[in-house]
Design a protein around this nucleic acid. Structure first.
Lengths: 236, 236
DNA sequence: CAATAAATATGATGTTTATCATCTATTTTA
DNA sequence: TAAAATAGATGATAAACATCATATTTATTG
């Protein structure tokens, strides 16, 4: 039996104050509320497809999302993640290019609002704060992407996997038992790191043997973050 | 003997109409002209250093520039290139973060103007066209970065090198003899591709043996672009 | 709950690519 | 212009990593 799912209101959205929308006025919020749509996704559902056009942006109200490209051999490459309060699809909308990545939900009950292009463009024009938040977000993302490029080009798989675990921790946090709050398959981990699934499996059991992590199914517990940081070879 | 170098004027800058500044009014142009600085660089000179702060953006009037990060083992990773009409340093300025990359000139007589932050911010606020151009540029760059990530993660060195040659062709063009209009060392090519210098050398002589390219020192002549495209494994 | 499918795990093997050594060619500089 | 330095080239070797094969465990479903 499917329970009734209500469209969340921006006005009461708990994630809004952490997001790019934090500087909007009451009027602007209700303007969006009156024009936005909302969809609910079960785990694994695709939200949008690489190559398609988008006429608006997607704002995640609840749940977790992976953004990925399909490489020339048909292999998935996870580019980044998004969670409640994050927006996705803005890159394609702003550049007026097709979507550069697909998005798929990582958990059931993922709730995502769709804000039409017109609304976004009008906010950009009318609200300088929102505009600067957007510019800042894009610039920040671009800096992160450059780091990923250097790591992929220069670091061995072991270091990249350790770094990926730390990034997942920073993105999704850990609970009181130090468990990273996102469930990914070994294959998905491989598709972030840029390696084979078997390599991820092998390296994870190595980390486990050295008591750096503990594994219970898809839950990964970070036991020794300093050691992970050392392996990841990061110094900032 | 060093010849006198004159500060170029935006008003007569041939590159302006191709750049993010193409939508500025006469007044705005002269406003910038009255506030900008200008520097001349010889080949190899560093324009700015990764990790530093910038209080403005750099607009390339003449010459070619590489943007690069230094990885954890001290190895250079070239992130992107810039040429006349391109701006660099805007990412760091807009995100209010330190510069994520260093920039160095690739040829003598590279001429670069510096536009102070205040000027840029005021243009963003006052000129919606300029603002949208900026948003578009950032979004486009972000999409390009995602492609690079997928390639680095999934493609073998041979494909990445072929693709790099094609990207260099698109960025810097070829002359009437099909020679790519940028001179890079084998090491620099390796630092784009994310591989060892020796691998680049070996693969280039393979391409040469197959009459796909011709090599005269640092000049690379593209003899068979369809073949290169096939090797690069790109399908868009 | 059995049966099937899918994910995880592990060993054996092969390929790709990096590293090291050495040599030659080309610049640069004294 | 000779000497030194740097860049390019090539072979030999080693390391990193992918692939393949095959268990084993965990989910899924009839």
């Amino acid at each position: 039996m499917k329970k009734h799912q209500e469209t969340p209101q921006c006005a009461t959205c708990g994630s809004r104050h952490l997001s790019v929308f934090c500087s909007l006025s009451q009027d602007e919020i209700s303007e969006i509320d009156n024009n936005k749509g909302c969809n609910f996704y079960s785990k694994g559902q695709v939200i949008f497809h690489e190559g398609n056009r988008t006429k608006g942006i997607y704002c995640i109200n609840k749940g977790k999302v992976k953004l990925y490209q399909i490489g020339s051999e048909g292999k998935e490459q996870i580019i980044r993640f998004a969670k409640a309060g994050d927006v996705i699809g803005y890159r394609a909308m702003l550049s007026e290019e097709p979507l550069s990545a697909s998005a798929a939900s990582l958990e059931d009950d993922t709730t995502i609002c769709f804000i039409p292009q017109d609304q976004v463009l009008s906010m950009i024009t009318k609200n300088p704060n929102f505009n600067f938040k957007l510019l800042k977000m894009l610039s920040h993302e671009l800096g992160e992407a450059a780091k990923v490029i250097t790591d992929l080009a220069q670091k061995p798989v072991r270091e990249r996997l350790a770094e990926t675990l730390l990034i997942l921790k920073n993105t999704f946090d850990v609970d009181e038992h130090k468990v990273i709050q996102v469930k990914l398959s070994r294959e998905e981990l491989a598709n972030i790191v840029g390696t084979a699934t078997e390599s991820v499996i092998r390296l994870l059991s190595e980390f486990k043997k050295d008591n750096i992590i503990a594994i219970e199914g898809r839950n990964i517990k970070l036991l020794n973050i300093p050691a992970l940081t050392r392996i990841a070879n990061v110094f900032e």
